[in-house]
Design a protein around this nucleic acid. Structure first.
Lengths: 194, 194
DNA sequence: TGACATCCTGAGGACGCCTCAGCTTAAATC
DNA sequence: GATTTAAGCTGAGGCGTCCTCAGGATGTCA
């Protein structure tokens, strides 16, 4: 829509870096406990910083979410590469999917943002999402090449399933978490018959 | 948490009924175009009514959503009964599931509210959700009794799958709606092997 | 035609978003 | 160390939304 997305960069000056880090730490904590729509003014004050400073470093909520979740997604991508080197392509895919669902539901509201970013280039998280998309697609292709997963499943469809599972996990209460069962059933629908 | 949920009732006085209906109509339109978090002040003004009047009839957003979606859920329950009378229990279940997913994603944010209401008694939509839960459970049981659906699938798990599908549909853009494929794959995971 | 319960109104406090003009300060240069 | 300057910080304030409540209006019933 309006050019390239804003990706927050660690600033140059010492005080800038300090505040940047403090805001990020506060944001992680706040998102975890209040979800992706946590109050930005709370986050700023938790970080010991004025609201304007928060906006200086993270001009949009999406850019803050992106910065707060970048590490996790990077890990996910890195892990995919390690898994791809393993012996069993299906095991690799399944292990990765489990991990992905957990990451996607780090806090309430994250899946929605990621799902949006996946196909919207004007979004801070789009870059990481694309990288992740590639990782998943590679693992999927390998499993399909080994004849372990149905060939008509596309990467987009895989991500729809993962997002759905993550969303269910997001909704889970302490006494009810249907996400692992969700994944199990999903795998039944995806893997080829013996 | 705090006693029984507030279910909006059609008021006694003529002006009250008029406003109640106008608000409901405006709310349906607003939810459809702006999602479940549409501005209540907008809805009131669209209905030609002061904000206080909206709150008089619908003291909470959840109660307004409940009233706006009651019909749809009632239909869903009624349809389940009709389907249950049909010859093929699996066909009945599948048809109902398709319909349920569509209803759950009537507007953005609805699935989340319904998923919440399903297991939280202190919620306006809980009553209808429970009725729907029973409907689905009946259809599921019948399909299982006929040996067409795996026996270890619980109603709760079925609703997790339906909610996941509905959520994916909610996220869909005009050019990308993965929900029908989602349902297809889901059915693969659920039905028994031939 | 009262009398009264029901209903309506909209100002106002609380909160969150986001901007911007003015001020402070780190750090590079001399 | 003094000077310069760009980077960074602040927080008041405008705006939108939520929700309440005191006071006023009106449908309804006898």
């Amino acid at each position: 829509m309006d050019g390239k997305p804003y990706i927050a960069r660690r600033p140059k000056r010492a005080d800038g870096r300090r505040n940047y880090d403090a805001i990020l730490a506060a944001a992680r904590k706040a998102f975890e406990s209040a979800g992706a729509d946590a109050s930005l003014e709370d986050i700023a004050s938790q970080a010991g910083v004025a609201i304007g400073t928060l906006y200086r470093h993270f001009p949009t909520r999406a850019s803050l979410v992106e910065a707060a979740t970048r590490d996790g997604l990077e890990n996910l991508v890195a892990h995919a590469e390690r898994l791809a080197a393993g012996p069993d392509p299906l095991d690799a895919l399944v292990a990765w999917m489990r991990e992905a669902v957990v990451h996607f539901s780090t806090f309430r509201g994250l899946v929605g943002i990621l799902a949006q970013s996946m196909y919207d280039e004007g979004t801070p998280s789009h870059t990481m999402c694309s990288a992740m998309h590639r990782s998943g697609a590679d693992l999927l292709r390998a499993a399909q090449a080994a004849g372990r997963v149905r060939h008509d499943l596309t990467p987009d469809e895989l991500f729809d399933l993962l997002s759905g599972a993550a969303w269910v996990r997001e909704q889970a209460t302490p006494d009810r978490d249907g996400s692992s069962r969700f994944l199990e059933l999903m795998l039944e629908g995806i893997t080829t018959r013996d």
